[in-house]
Design a protein around this nucleic acid. Structure first.
Length: 473
RNA sequence: GGCGCCGUCGCCAAGAGGUAAGGCAGAGGUCUGCAAAACCUCCACCCCCGGUUCAAAUCCGGGCGGCGCCUCCA
């Protein structure tokens, strides 16, 4: 598989580590608010990456996705809500898990939170290691990283500090630093803020800086560096990932991660979707508008992960239609009764499978992979129409679509949604029977009445030669 | 001011030297009690101007336009 590595700014062949295992870390959500679909673009793309590893390439995956549950915003939010930090952030972690489930994300092997005791201790140990290696200094009770002690600093982001001028906003952090580029490892205690200390490690009362948690948790849970992949949104390249590298490499003296994968922004109204801009949509917003999470998932996979994707309600509606085409096809396949098996069919299926695999291995080209699937669907639909597809062909086709879906995770998600129609299934079936009776006595007004009545309630009926099928609108 | 990405049909989007995948929408048709689904047909010289080449949407140069990073952010 070829993957684009931000570190080298080029595609590189990727292979797993020992034991055929891929150890990957994904920067997760800061849990002061519900995640929006821009956040989920990253998580869905990384989910497809891990599925590609597992189901297409046969690797094992150990993935860590963290929750940042202590920072300025979570502290402020908890204070405002009159809750303790832990229970305040609990709500958003629960919401994240709900949204993740509705988008069909496979659970990561580890989902640590920064304020877990073991993680705080790992951060303190890392700070102690940085102390030992001469990368730190203290000021006003806080602990800082002295960037000048790490010549390689800036390799990931490739920022030219000489070039930073007028347009660049200056660091507004209200902690005292020697150099604008230095960053906080541990923020000194302030009244009203949660505080931890590890005196035996030289860590005085305070709380973690943002960057330290990812470095510490990644190495604690994934083992020795370098890990195989570190992933996140493009906005994390600087300063977050650059600083993670500084911390990890300053502490261990070894490279932190072999690959750095960054997912581009989801934009909306020609601007990035971000909480600070206030133009965000959540999964529940989408559902309230009558769309389904499966359509969101497909939309997020419809463009290459390294290209900005402009979110519009129209494109989401188009995804609903595309998905319908796919599930209609699968339903049609189940209704095939003609016997026989056809070499041409299996050749076309094999070809599509190969195109799919090639596309996914080409830096996760989900858009091209989807193209191969739709092309196959059109071919197979026309084969059904012309009687060139028989029951003997069906299992192989089903296997292939199952493989597509293990990787993309969108069809089964859709089908699970379809299994929960707005009208109870037994009622739908009863009405279909009534309508059959009406049609048999050629009372088409009554038959059409039943059909439009169900349609108004979100259930569509389709007649074919043998039977009537229902589906969600 | 520095750095980066992008501009392909009405909309979304692959393709990255060999003559434009796919989805949605639209038009016409086949099938059907009517619908729906499905199928068939139609629907792009790839932002502009130069250059390199037998050949460029793809490479180079210059424009124009959009987005992003250099601040917390997926």
């Amino acid at each position: 598989m070829r993957l684009y590595n931000t570190l080298s700014r080029s595609e590189e062949p990727f292979s797993p580590g020992p034991d055929n295992t891929v150890r990957m870390y994904t920067c997760g959500l800061t849990v002061y608010a519900r995640g929006h679909i821009g956040n989920f673009r990253t998580f869905v793309c990384v989910d497809v990456l891990r599925r590609t590893f597992k189901y297409l390439l046969g690797y094992r995956v150990k993935q860590v996705v963290n929750f940042t549950d202590v920072d300025d915003r979570t502290i402020a939010g908890a204070l405002k809500a009159g809750m303790d930090l832990r229970s305040y952030t609990d709500q958003y972690i629960a919401a994240f898990r709900d949204d993740a489930r509705s988008l069909g994300l496979e659970p990561a092997e580890e989902t640590p939170r920064a304020t877990d005791e073991a993680n705080l201790r790992a951060m303190a140990s890392m700070i102690a290691a940085l102390d030992k290696n001469g990368h730190t200094y203290r000021s006003d009770g806080s602990i800082y990283y002295r960037i000048s002690t790490l010549p390689a600093y800036g390799r990931l982001a490739r920022l030219d500090h000489e070039g930073m001028k007028d347009g660049a906003r200056v660091d507004s952090d209200s902690y005292a630093k020697e150099d604008a580029r230095d960053f906080v490892l541990w923020k000194g205690h302030r009244d009203g803020e949660p505080s931890w200390e590890f005196p035996q490690l030289g860590v005085t009362p305070g709380r973690p800086g943002w960057h330290i948690e990812c470095s510490a948790m990644a190495l604690r849970l994934l083992g020795e560096s370098p890990i195989d992949i570190h992933a996140g949104g493009v906005d994390l390249i600087f300063p977050h990932h650059e600083n993670e590298i500084a911390q990890s490499e300053g502490a261990t003296g070894k490279p932190f991660s072999r690959f750095w994968i960054h997912v581009e922004y989801l934009i909306v109204d020609e601007q990035k979707m971000s909480k600070s801009l206030g133009n965000t949509y959540t999964i529940s917003d989408v559902v309230a508008k009558g769309f389904r999470p499966s359509a969101v998932r497909l939309l997020l996979l419809s463009a290459h992960y390294r290209k900005q994707l402009n979110f519009t309600w129209d494109s989401l509606a188009a995804m609903e239609e595309s998905l319908r085409r796919l599930t209609d096809f699968l339903a049609r396949l189940g209704a095939v009764t003609r016997a026989g098996m056809h070499a041409e069919v299996s050749a076309r299926v094999d070809e599509a499978r190969k195109q799919f695999v090639d596309a996914m291995q080409d830096d996760l080209n989900t858009a091209a992979a989807l193209g191969a699937i739709f092309e196959l669907v059109r071919y197979l639909n026309s084969a059904i129409d012309s009687g060139q597809l028989g029951t003997g062909d069906v299992p192989g086709i089903r296997d292939t679509f199952a493989q597509f879906d293990r990787v993309l995770g969108v069809l089964s998600l859709r089908q699970a949604e379809d299994d929960r129609p707005p009208v109870p299934v037994d009622e739908i079936e009863r009405l279909i029977e009534e309508r059959h009776a009406a049609r048999r006595r050629r009372d088409f007004a009554a038959a059409d009445g039943i059909r439009s009545g169900l349609a108004a309630r979100g259930v569509l009926l389709e007649d074919s030669a043998g039977a009537t099928r229902w589906k969600r609108k």
